[in-house]
Structures are given as structure tokens and as C-alpha cells.
Design a binder for these strands. Structure first.
Lengths: 199, 199
DNA sequence: GGCTATATGGAGACTGTCTCCGCTTCGACT
DNA sequence: AGTCGAAGCGGAGACAGTCTCCATATAGCC
């Protein structure tokens, strides 16, 4: 009874529909890509388009709701990394890896994420949260001299996003993905010896 | 008269229309982005949609025709670089810079370019040509020990493309673009002293 | 000037996002 | 249990984009 106010704000049938739509969308986006049409999702969920749009006013909102769920597991991973890894440099490395996987939870996801960083969208808050976390983990590494101060959390976020976009979910760019990840890593790592080319 | 066989294969009015459409499209894509609709371009050019599609069977084909023109100036730049720069490492650097500009000739261009690398499209040949050139310039740098052998021309192409995509044409990511470009550069440069993190 | 291959333009098929609104159903109150 | 208003539902259809089809118009060779 004393659930959250959100739960009680929705009639029980609506709650069920909402959850069902999310589950169906998760599978549809996961099996194919975010290109699956809203109408198709409505049909798969056995509801009318109106119902779908009542719960999620546009496609980004649906994606955002799905991503918030995913974000929770990303945050769990963050806690895990921060707890288990005392080396701030290694922690950053693990975090960026987790970040890459998160961004590719659904094929085609990088595009709306990028858009959300430019114009307000339902995905925007999640993006900002991820950037802030990246910033924090980066700073810890910087404070220990394990990462250059030339980069910001935002830079790393965009770097990871760009790599996710370029390599996509298809296997086509497996090698390229690994190489670019390595390039990004080298990019933030503090050179052990002489400074390379600065900004 | 003894122009190319292409010219004589088209009636004069068709030649004129084709050229006019190209010019209009160039301006439209340049002022706004590649999102300008085909219908809008047809209207701007004062022709029917049928005429537009007769000359360019789909949007990618139109983009490809435009890009081929741009590719010529990119190739001029390549010749210029190769002639004027004896340092193979510096040549690579200049080439990647030119590459970045070329990829952002029109806002939104990176997306179709990436798609063309995965599935056949009118843009595919141009992409392959650019990758091959990058490979060649990279190899020259590698042979002089100025670039790591861990990267391929394809990797650098995708790296540049990813950066172009992430920073877009809008000014929003000016800093990020520069930082990422630097990261990419550091990524291919042979470390002067001790080897950093390997693959 | 006549004729035919070539070219044209725009209606409309198709697909996708999203809105609107008449009808249904839940569930609180009696 | 029965009533009833608010919450929810579904799907027709508005709108925008890509691209096709074909009746009509035109260039340019005779």
C-alpha cells in the first residue's frame, strides 16, 4: 500500500501495461536495434499506439526509461570498481570499459545519447550523471598522477561514445574497437617518462 | 564535344538539371545539414521529385556525387602534403587533419559514411579510396618508425570519423574535438622513449 | 516541321512518429 | 452490489520523409 507515490499514481492496469511495454521494448531493442519502430513495439506489446505514447511521450522517453534501469547496473559496477580497486588508474580503465558496454546495450544507442548531450531530451539527465561520475573517477586518477590533466570527464565520455558509435554492435569492427579503446586509454594515461606532444 | 561519354549520354537539359541540383544540394547541405529532405532539395532546385530521383536514385547517391567533388580537393591536399612535407609523421598528421575537415564538409555526414563502410552504398567506393590513401600515408610513417605498427589505416579512418561524429559541426564540442584529435595523434605516434602500455 | 528517345513533374504508395478523441474499465464511495 | 467520474485505452489519421510510376512535354536528329 505504502509503495511509492509513483505506483499509487497509476491505476493497476496502467502499471502492468507500463511494465509490459518496457519488457517488450527491452527485448525488441536488444534483439534488433533501437531502430525498431514505436508502432512495432506497441503491436508486440499488444497495446494501441495511444497507450504506448501515454506512458512514454516519445521514443527517447522509452529509451530513457530502459536506460535508467541499465544505469542502475552500471552504477553497481561503479561501486564494485571503487570498492575493489585501489589503483585509481586501473579503476578508471575498468570504468571506461563498463561505460563502453553500457553505451552498446542496444545497437544504435550512441546516436540518441549524443543528441541528448546537445539538446534537452529524456536521456539528458542520465548522460549528465554518467559524465559526472566519469569526471569523479578521472579526478581520482589525476590526483594520483595516473591520468593527464588535459582531459576532462566529458572528453572521456565522448571518446568512449565515439568508439561505441564507430564500432557499433555488429562484429564488423571488432579489431578497430579494440585498437581505438587502446588509443583512448593511452590518451589519458600519464606518460611514464618524457612528456609526448602536449596540447 | 569530345567531352566524356557521360556528358554526351545526357541530353543538354538533363545535364543542366543535374548540375543545378548538385549546386542546390551543396548549398542546402552546407547551410543546414544532410538532414535536408530530398523533396526540399527538389523544390529548391525547381524540379519535380521524379527528376531528382532520376539523376540520383537515392539520397546517398546525391551525397556521394557531392562527396566525389569534395574528394578531389581532398586528393589535391594529399598531393600537396606529400610533395611539401618530407617528414612522414608530420604528413600523416596533416592528412588526418584534412580528413577530419572533409568528413565534416556537411553536418551529419559521418553517419552515412560509417554506414557505407558496413553495407554497400554509393558512398562505399569513396570510403575505400580514402581508407587506402590513409593506409599508404600511415605505412610511410611506420616505415620511418614514426608511427606504431599496431594501427591500420582503417583504424585511423574510423578514429577520425568517430571524432568527427562526436564533435559534430556545431560549436558545442570545440574543446572536446581538439582533445580527442590529440588523443588520436598520440595513439598512432611511436613513443619517443620507453614503450607505454602495449596492446 | 515531324518524330522518337529522352526527360519531366507530381500524385501517391509506403513507412515512421506522434495526436486526438470516443469508448472502456477501474476502483472509490455509497 | 450498484453507481459514476476519472483514468486509461486503442486505433484512425495527421504529418513528414523516401522513393516509384507513368502520362505528358521536350530536345534534337531527320
Amino acid at each position: 500500500m505504502s509503495q511509492s507515490s509513483i505506483a499509487s499514481a497509476l491505476r493497476r492496469d496502467a502499471q502492468h501495461n507500463r511494465a509490459h511495454i518496457l519488457e517488450v521494448a527491452r527485448q525488441a531493442f536488444g534483439n534488433d536495434s533501437v531502430d525498431v519502430s514505436m508502432d512495432a513495439i506497441a503491436k508486440l506489446a499488444g497495446v494501441g499506439a495511444g497507450t504506448l505514447y501515454r506512458h512514454f511521450p516519445n521514443k527517447d522517453a522509452l529509451l530513457a526509461a530502459l536506460l535508467v534501469l541499465h544505469y542502475e547496473s552500471l552504477d553497481d559496477r561503479r561501486v564494485e570498481i571503487e570498492a575493489g580497486e585501489s589503483d585509481a588508474g586501473r579503476a578508471l580503465e575498468l570504468w571506461v570499459e563498463a561505460l563502453g558496454d553500457w553505451m552498446l546495450a542496444y545497437e544504435g544507442l550512441p546516436e540518441p545519447l549524443r543528441a541528448a548531450c546537445r539538446v534537452e531530451s529524456p536521456l539528458t539527465p542520465t548522460c549528465h550523471a554518467v559524465i559526472a561520475t566519469t569526471e569523479r573517477i578521472l579526478k581520482a586518477a589525476q590526483d594520483e598522477g595516473l591520468a593527464r590533466r588535459t582531459m576532462t570527464g566529458r572528453d572521456i565520455f565522448f571518446g568512449a561514445l565515439a568508439i561505441a558509435w564507430a564500432s557499433g554492435a555488429t562484429a564488423a569492427g571488432e579489431d578497430t574497437r579494440n585498437v581505438l579503446r587502446d588509443v583512448l586509454k593511452n590518451g589519458w594515461m600519464e606518460p611514464k617518462t618524457a612528456p609526448g606532444g602536449g596540447v
